[in-house]
Design a protein around this nucleic acid. Structure first.
Lengths: 207, 207
DNA sequence: ACCTGAACACCGTTCAAGT
DNA sequence: ACCTGAACACCGTTCAAGT
């Protein structure tokens, strides 16, 4: 019963099973993963270099869900908005995956195509290369931070007995809404888009 | 040689030693930490509940470096800018700590006072409680994401052989500058502050 | 090529024993 | 109260052995 005629494992199956564990428990170990796949832990090494590669496979699975807009049909602002929102949503579907991703360098092509699309939309807006990199970085930071913020069993929204009234009344006013993460993300994104619009307009005036 | 007359350990010493390991290696183990403190691993448990508490102690050490502005002397926008910049800077001093923090709930009072100060500055601007919580969340997300972005041996700035020209020329235009993370953060923060200013003005008009 | 089981060095945590 | 060393269950990874 050493080598089966049809393989029991594949990188796809490994990634999906691992993602299931992370969604459920916030972490995963190779013995857990192997058990879930009805296989021994050492078998995983026939398909994968180690635990790190499994994390990169999960990133790919999450990013694969992103559908990019057709850049020919919409304004650049709508394009950037759509890309950023898809990006945020795919992170938010697997919030507990994010902490695992942040300590790893990315080289995943599925992720890079999102940056490509962003760059193209910003170029459409007439934003010059140097400002374009800054804009991408700012949007990326906000998306990642927002997804993290939505992910973490958050601070602030639970315990602040000795806090100022300014903070407490803000908490009380904002708590109950379950769609808060989404609407807050969209508001912040609109702020950035508005500012990028001004910058693009000023650039085409002056330069 | 069991109990020394003067204790060899303290939570402060443990946190500082752990922070040194994380800064240097991006992670830490209890045996490593114990060795650095010339102590056995089990001794740590006389001062600390476990590894998780050590992470929280490190968060406190990082946040303790934040100096909050005197809110009486500056405009609310300058106050928010100063708070957010200090916050970002203290994360950025220990970039490799961030991934460890993101999977933990916060209850650290040193961190909460930063939110208090932010809330007060936004209240000064006349921003109502519900919008105040959104504004705090947006700023927090951007600060955290920007620090992470500056931390990670980043994607994008290395490998994109098959990328679009729009993206490549942005990369080429932006790479060489070593102060890029700081200036990009400040630009994004200004974008958000401008939008918050509009919102505050509109609120005081209408309401 | 692909799975197994034994083995290795390591980890976080507990606990009786010492002063 | 505070440190030690032995012990436990667990982890990631390697590798010879099987088909």
């Amino acid at each position: 019963m050493a080598r089966p005629s049809t393989p029991k494992l594949s990188t796809r199956a490994i990634a999906d099973a691992a993602l299931g564990l992370v969604d459920a428990h916030g972490e995963f170990t190779l013995p857990q993963l192997a058990r879930k796949l009805s296989v021994s832990a050492s078998s995983l090494y026939n398909h994968v270099q180690g635990k790190g590669e499994i994390i990169e496979l999960m990133r790919g699975r999450a990013m694969a869900e992103i559908e990019l807009p057709d850049l020919g049909n919409v304004s650049w602002q709508e394009a950037v908005r759509a890309i950023a929102t898809e990006y945020w949503a795919s992170y938010s579907k697997h919030p507990r995956l994010i902490p695992l991703l942040t300590s790893h360098t990315v080289r995943d092509s599925t992720t890079l195509r999102v940056y490509d699309a962003l760059a193209e939309a910003l170029a459409m807006a007439g934003i010059e290369p140097a400002q374009r990199l800054q804009a991408i970085t700012i949007i990326d930071s906000f998306v990642l931070g927002s997804a993290l913020d939505a992910a973490a069993p958050k601070i602030v929204w639970e315990a602040a007995p000795e806090s100022s009234n300014y903070f407490k009344e803000a908490l009380e006013a904002g708590l109950s809404d379950s769609s808060r993460p989404q609407t807050t993300f969209e508001l912040g994104l609109s702020m950035l888009l508005g500012a990028l619009g001004h910058q693009a307009a000023a650039g085409s005036d002056g330069g």
